[in-house]
């Protein structure tokens, strides 16, 4: 094994770890969890509000969930209702809700904001951090901007499902098991979210055309 510089011993492959986990070797959980960690971090970051973001580190949320996962692993292995990643994601999501509740606390309840809503600022921050390459066409850039704006204005449920599908890269089945609904229902909700996003875009386009004609 050649490794010029690394802090950890080379990671075993996911398949091996999963196999060991399936065989009931609990120590393999750490390896599997590490494997999914960046993806879980990303999921959390998409849903952190700017003010909370400053105090909460996504990786802390994810790390805390690791303990949840370790505690509840036997239960999971017994039942195996959902795919492993979806299960881990659910734990992280639950932990995130707790953290958000703690940080936003009573204020949120007071103004009646949905605590669990994915945060558009989180999305915006993640996007702002992106390096832009000069080769990207201006038109695409503009379209993306409009889609992003429309996404921010979408209802929480609709936005969440689009985040899962297009930002987190979950498939329909995964979304269904994450939400605890039938695959057909998940597909329907996905379709509905897309339609609403489309309508939101149409409305924006019309609005901006009208503005231009006034000038």
């Amino acid at each position: 094994m050649k490794s010029p510089e690394g802090r950890d011993p080379e990671r075993p492959s996911l398949a091996v770890s999963l196999g060991r986990l399936e065989a009931g070797e609990r120590a393999a959980l750490a390896e599997v969890f590490d494997h999914y960690r960046p993806r879980l971090n990303h999921m959390v970051r998409l849903r952190l509000d700017a003010p909370v973001h400053r105090r909460v580190d996504a990786s802390d949320v994810v790390q805390e969930s690791y303990l949840d996962a370790a505690n509840r692993l036997p239960e999971y292995l017994r039942e195996r209702k959902v795919p492993l990643y979806v299960w881990l994601r659910g734990l992280v999501h639950g932990r995130l809700l707790k953290v958000l509740r703690h940080h936003r606390g009573a204020q949120c309840r007071a103004v009646g904001r949905e605590v669990a809503s994915p945060s558009s600022t989180g999305i915006a921050e993640a996007l702002a951090a992106t390096q832009t390459s000069p080769s990207q066409a201006a038109e695409r850039e503009e379209r993306r901007g409009r889609v992003r704006l429309a996404l921010e204005r979408l209802g929480d449920d609709d936005r969440d499902i689009l985040l899962m599908r297009h930002f987190e890269g979950l498939g329909n089945r995964d979304v269904a098991s994450a939400l605890g609904i039938q695959a057909s229902t998940a597909a329907m909700r996905y379709g509905r979210a897309l339609e609403r996003l489309g309508r939101m875009l149409d409305r924006d386009t019309m609005a901006s055309t009208r503005e231009e004609s006034v000038r």
Binding site: H42, I123, T130, Q131, R140, R143, R144, V147, R148, E168
Partner: peptide, 18 residues
Amino acid sequence: EALDELGSDSRSASAIVD
């Protein structure tokens, strides 16, 4: 397409943070 681009942007942004 725009959605997918945004999604992949956000992933690489997140990856840079990570």
